[in-house]
């Protein structure tokens, strides 16, 4: 992977894979279940198809199996049942966690180079691509800074740049901005949506924040408490162009309400089951 695709290079002759549109990949999750060795059933019969270039947000109560689902999509965990089908080879996948997971002894640009190094990309090209990726996340001036010298939001940007530098066709986000303050989080959301849409990358975004889910995603999938399964999917009809003003609009609030109603229904249903079991 990591081959710059020719379309849209416009003949300017610049080897600039990171800011070229890249065709995303389709992800078909079919009947995926996962039982842990402890006997705990974390996911049951999850079905979800994500179109090429689509961004799906996944929300659900804590412990419902969201991270487990991402690990299965990434290939870090195998499902006990079901399959994840990409319609071909496993795509180049980027994975971003809640924490930046940088190497403290490497400065920003050397951190961004890490995955390219794993892939055996030559030094000069590595530098170049890392520099572009840092530019993309607005950290061009901080390439020499060490993680200890960067704020939480900046570290997260470096982490994003590190992933984008590898030209992923599929991006998995596991509450990447949960540890940040609201202002930084909104700003990163704005940046992310731009990066994601520009490049047409397929994405799955796990979050606890309904607002974040609705702002970012084309669809929001709601999961039930464990054993997790998808109990509702809400379409987000705002297209690709999302401005900060969207957050305060009535349409936005309406979609967010739909999502919370599904979530609330399941919390209540769960509660009633527990009550029923006690009687």
């Amino acid at each position: 992977m990591g081959q710059a695709n020719a379309q849209g290079s416009g003949g300017d002759g610049r080897a600039a894979p990171v800011d070229m549109p890249q065709a995303g990949v389709t992800v078909a999750i079919e009947g995926v279940s996962r039982r842990f060795r402890t006997g705990f059933l974390a996911l049951t019969e999850v079905d979800l198809t994500i179109g090429a270039g689509e961004l799906v947000a996944v929300v659900g109560p804590s412990g419902c199996g969201k991270s487990t689902l991402l690990k299965i999509i990434a290939g870090l965990l195998t499902p006990t049942d079901g399959v994840v089908d990409f319609g071909g080879d496993r795509p180049e996948t980027g994975y971003v966690f809640q924490d930046a997971h940088l190497l403290p002894w490497r400065n920003a640009i050397r951190n961004v180079e890490l995955f390219l190094e794993v892939d055996g990309v030559r030094k000069q090209e590595r530098r170049e691509r890392a520099r572009q990726a840092l530019q993309l996340v607005g950290l061009a001036d901080f390439e020499g800074s060490y993680p200890a010298e960067l704020s939480g939001g900046m570290k997260m940007r470096v982490s994003l740049a590190r992933t984008f530098a590898t030209d992923p066709q599929l991006m998995l986000f596991d509450e990447p901005f949960a540890a940040l303050d609201e202002i930084t989080r909104n700003r990163l959301n704005n940046d992310l949506i731009r990066l994601q849409r520009d490049r047409g990358v397929t994405g799955v975004f796990v979050t606890h924040s309904i607002g974040e889910a609705v702002f970012l995603a084309d669809r929001v999938a709601v999961m039930s408490p464990a054993p997790g399964r998808i109990v509702g999917i809400v379409d987000v009809p705002f297209g690709g162009d999302r401005s900060a003003a969207l957050r305060t609009s009535a349409e936005f609030a309406a979609v967010a309400r739909d999502v919370s109603e599904i979530m609330a229904a399941y919390e209540v249903a769960e509660g009633q089951e527990i009550m029923a079991a006690k009687e």
Partner: peptide
């Protein structure tokens, strides 16, 4: 060593 980072590198085939 950061286990999550080792996982990310594992995803890239190492």
């Amino acid at each position: 060593a950061d286990a999550a980072l080792v996982d990310l590198i594992r995803l890239r085939g190492r």
